[in-house]
Design a protein around this nucleic acid. Structure first.
Lengths: 217, 217, 217, 217
DNA sequence: AATGAATGAGAGTTCATTCAT
DNA sequence: GATGAATGAACTCTCATTCAT
């Protein structure tokens, strides 16, 4: 229906732009409501209200409430996965100690950027549909870690996928504990150091005994 | 835990016995419903139905739905905490490697004894009230670990509470991931070994450099 | 269980005595609960509890909740009616001014002896069954008043029943207002005087102009 | 009350009109249910059903059941108070006998316009919240009566507020009795005359002894 | 497209009443 | 008889979803 801007890249039509804006507003509103009022107050009406659109419109963009919440969760998880992905790519071929530090740092940075949001989304992650998204994201991240580990020059992992999975689980679990429980004072501050320590110790368990270069058959 | 002296007192009046049976039936039913139908289907009606009692009876034993779910969660957490507590006590003064193995083994044994139950209860843990119970249990377990660590003859922890907290978080988080996501094949089987490896590596990070007795300045 | 005093009047059997005690306890308990916790808290369980008997027993003495409440109301109304009845009998043949004063005084004394109770019972009076009891009591009292009025030496009432009904309505209504609304300060204190004034004025409206015997045309 | 100028503005937006219609339908339905089935059958479901709207809609207009009933009562009481208020204003400065007649006539006319409604609302008046509304209305009416009495040229009231309160209580109480009890035949018909008699007698009790004009000190 | 009033199934909870003990 | 746990219909209220405007 809209006349596309003459020439360059196909922009979103005005209609689509409006849609996109509304969708984004709903996403942000959902997080705010979730954060400030809790899951049980996170009704479609409240979200729409906060987003400044009508409930009717909400249902134009999402088939139902769960789809909206899933979308919110998915975007969040995508962000996390992207950051970790990137860090893993960037540290291929580096020594495992650097890998460990990079992994921890990247994940913490991503997850703690908006702690309230991260915390609130755990509530969604447990709901129908959430588990699957989390599983997908986990697979993606573990794959990235696995690939990184496999490229380590100073270590050999018999089963890098397993090691990666355990490493990520430990990391994600620790952060979850931090966010969910009111962590004891100073916990947050020193968590990063401790996690790097933990991660490094775990990965270096697999360190290659001697100069690996030449003799790999 | 104690074997009752054979043949003696009936221990509970018939009335209490019926009550206890109903309460237990409700507890089990709640876990079943949670497991098989999810948190949002876990209504008082459904639980009572499954337990074979009427809703009215449910409310005779629990003041409201949340109290029932909290009771279920609390019993579960108490079981876990008891096992870990016990293991920590039993390994005071042992080398850290044994501590690590014992901690991992005890926690896994407790948490994976009924995986469905454990999994289902994560859903409750996020609800209002659940978080507090989890926090309490965490504090109790971390305290036990901390005390154990502080007694290690072959390591010195500057901040055993921090180390204990991180160790537990990593452990609990890994198991959660295992239970929540459909873990990749074989994950469960080798998880215990990997977690022992992880835990040991982390704790031995703090190993006392040499024979500690004589040369401490 | 007790040995009945040998000989004289047929006492209630022990069983009946127990029943009577329980019934009375329930009656009193109902009033207390009604007074202290309100009609919506006036459940059979609560009443039985307060009376120190079991719900089961309550249902041995009363076929259902409404019957219990009706019994409570009935006894209350009987008390009131009795007092007024008595006063009316005692003032037959007296001047109307004395009748007015006696009526007001008797009714107020009866109704305000336990204001809380009186007030609480208005709640029952509106429920199914209550209205009928109230109507019956009204009829009884109005009859007594009517008879008294008809005997007045210094007045003549064309329709003493009508006059009696209006007089009683006004009286009962005023007291109800006093009890229900938080009456303005001092209202209670001077109500009696004002009501006597009102009643006297109303009844003296019908005063026989002169020596009544002879000259009635 | 005013005839809307023909053909002009729709006065209410369609939305508001629908709302208003629903609210009014609920009000009427509540009175009908109360009248025909009693307070204990006056449930939100039943009211909504009778009003031809869904329960959900009921809760869109009233925060809860009590609020709906209170609204119904309030409107009724406002109507009564308005009529009495008006009559009192209109009879300031008139002789007390006219005041008495006007007060009785106005109140009866208002209260007996829809006797079923009036009767049904007594049930609400006793519930939590109802008492307060009744008290407020009472205060308003008594104030109006008091002001009227104070303006009487042919009587002097030492405490017009007290006299007003008693007068109103007697009046309201009599009517209540009429409506609640199945009044004896003909009662209603002659009640007005009797109440005027009663009221007049009571008020004239305070008649100023002699020609008041000149000698007011 | 956008709106938000209307819907009604279904949730949690209560309580008069019964009946096995 | 007395008991009080068990019952379940019925109540109030919520909220995801629809659809006339």
């Amino acid at each position: 229906m809209s006349a596309v801007a003459p020439g360059l890249k196909p922009r979103k039509s005005p209609v689509q732009a409006r849609s996109a804006a509304a969708v984004e507003a709903l996403r942000v509103a959902a997080i705010q409501v979730l954060t400030q009022e809790g899951l049980s107050c996170c009704t479609t009406t409240r979200i729409a209200e906060r987003a400044g659109v009508s409930v009717g419109s909400l249902y134009q963009y999402f088939p139902n409430r769960d789809a909206l919440l899933a979308a919110v969760l998915e975007k969040h998880l995508d962000g996390i996965a992207g950051v970790v992905d990137h860090a893993c790519h960037a540290h291929r071929g580096k020594p495992v100690s650097q890998m460990a530090a990079a992994l921890v740092t990247a994940f913490l940075a991503a997850k703690l950027r908006d702690p309230e949001e991260s915390k609130a989304l755990y509530a969604i992650a447990g709901e129908r549909g959430g588990a699957e998204l989390v599983a997908r994201m986990r697979i993606r991240i573990v794959a990235a870690i696995t690939a990184m580990l496999a490229s380590a020059p100073d270590a050999h992992f018999d089963d890098p996928a397993m090691t990666g999975a355990v490493a990520f689980s430990a990391l994600a679990g620790s952060v979850r504990t931090l966010l969910e429980g009111q962590a004891p004072g100073g916990f947050e501050a020193r968590l990063e150091g401790q996690l790097i320590l933990l991660m490094t110790a775990y990965l270096e368990t697999h360190r290659r005994p001697a100069s690996p270069r030449r003799e790999a058959p």
